[in-house]
Amino acid sequence: MYALFYFFAWAAMWVWVVKTRGNWNLLLANLAGAASGFLVALAISIVCSGLFPSAVPPSSANLLRDLLEVMTTAGALAGVWMWMLRRPQPEQPLARHLLAGLCGMTAGITTLMFFVLNFR
């Protein structure tokens, strides 16, 4: 039963992101929907295991820490990428995306390394 709830939450978030994509490309909206749906479903499964411990085996402390690491790393990567993408320089869109991607990956890897070195 909880597996169905998990997949329903994943699909609902995925559909919501794709429907509210605005001017995004359909492929990018599906990728963002799949990733955000997975994170929401994972968070819901952790909350359900805490609320109903008799029905679901409790999640380990490592799972909570790993979820925090993944969400923070993805947030740093996407946030820096979007921030750099809105800059007016360089003028070519491809160059702007490459620079934003490089800076976003650097921020994501730096965030992940911070967690690995401090909390492992």
Rank of each mutant, 00 (worst) to 15 (best):
R87C: 08
M105R: 06
A55M: 10
R86E: 13
L99I: 15
R65K: 14
I44P: 01
T106N: 06
P90A: 11
W83D: 01
S54R: 08
M82S: 14
G75C: 04
A78E: 00
G108C: 01
S59D: 08
E69A: 14
L51R: 09
L42T: 06
L63H: 06
A55D: 13
V70Y: 07
A61K: 11
M71G: 07
M84S: 08
L102I: 13
A61S: 14
E91A: 15
G108E: 02
L77T: 14
S59R: 11
A78Y: 00
L94G: 04
L77H: 04
W81G: 00
A78K: 00
A78H: 00
T73A: 13
G50K: 09
G104I: 06
M105P: 03
G50P: 00
S49R: 12
S54E: 13
S49I: 05
L98C: 08
C103E: 08
L64T: 03
A61M: 09
S54W: 05
L63T: 12
A55R: 10
L99T: 11
G108N: 01
S45M: 09
R87Y: 04
L99F: 11
L99S: 12
A78P: 00
V80A: 10
C48N: 12
R86I: 01
R65P: 02
Q89M: 08
D66M: 09
G75E: 03
I44D: 05
R96Q: 01
W83H: 03
A95K: 15
L98W: 05
H97K: 09
S60M: 06
L102C: 15
Q89I: 05
G104N: 10
A43K: 06
V56D: 01
A100D: 06
P88D: 04
P57C: 02
P90I: 07
A74V: 08
N62C: 04
S59P: 07
V47P: 01
E69R: 12
P93W: 11
C48S: 13
P58E: 09
F52Y: 11
A107R: 02
P53G: 12
D66K: 02
E91R: 15
G108I: 01
R87K: 15
S49K: 07
Q89K: 12
V47T: 07
G108S: 06
V56S: 01
P88A: 12
C103K: 13
R86D: 12
G104F: 11
S45A: 14
W81E: 02
M71V: 14
R87W: 06
P90R: 10
V47H: 01
P58M: 10
A74G: 11
A100H: 07
M84N: 03
G75T: 04
H97R: 13
A61R: 10
L42S: 10
A74E: 03
Q92Y: 07
A43M: 12
A107V: 06
V47C: 07
V70N: 09
P90K: 09
G50F: 05
C103V: 14
A78R: 00
L98N: 09
V56A: 02
P53L: 10
A107G: 08
G108V: 01
A55I: 10
I46R: 02
L94W: 11
L102P: 05
R65N: 10
G108F: 01
F52C: 09
V47G: 04
A55T: 09
E91F: 04
P57F: 04
L63S: 13
Q92E: 14
L42E: 12
H97L: 04
L63V: 14
R65Y: 07
A76H: 08
P58L: 13
V47A: 15
